[in-house]
């Protein structure tokens, strides 16, 4: 997993546009990059969920009720926040990365 955003790191207001871009405005290439990265994350989630459900079903466990319960658990919220920030950093990278 990527590290969470480093607030002291400099992000250029105008990221470098050297190198290849397919659209006249390189911003469009970057936006496409964000969408594709997001797609990767969505795919991973679906894949992981599918694996999880299969694994649990193999053990004879029905998880639906437990999932509803955990979603609102305040203790879990703390670790979720860190994961979420790392996740955002990863897929929004395409906006500013070289």
């Amino acid at each position: 997993m990527s590290s969470p955003p480093d607030p002291s790191a400099e992000v250029a207001a105008d990221p470098p546009t050297r190198g290849y871009h397919a659209f006249e405005d390189p911003v469009h290439d970057r936006l496409l990059g964000v969408i594709l990265a997001l797609g990767a994350e969505v795919w991973n989630l679906r894949e992981r969920l599918g694996l999880l459900e299969s694994a649990l079903a193999r053990q004879g466990v029905d998880v639906s009720a437990l999932i509803e319960e955990l979603a609102l658990d305040p203790e879990r919220a703390a670790s979720m926040t860190a994961d979420r920030d790392a996740f955002l950093a990863r897929f929004l990278r395409a906006i500013s990365a070289d």
Partner: peptide, 12 residues
């Protein structure tokens, strides 16, 4: 789109 996708996928 194809070219930009190719380029982005490569970097990713």
């Amino acid at each position: 789109f194809a070219a930009a996708t190719q380029h982005q996928a490569q970097k990713m």
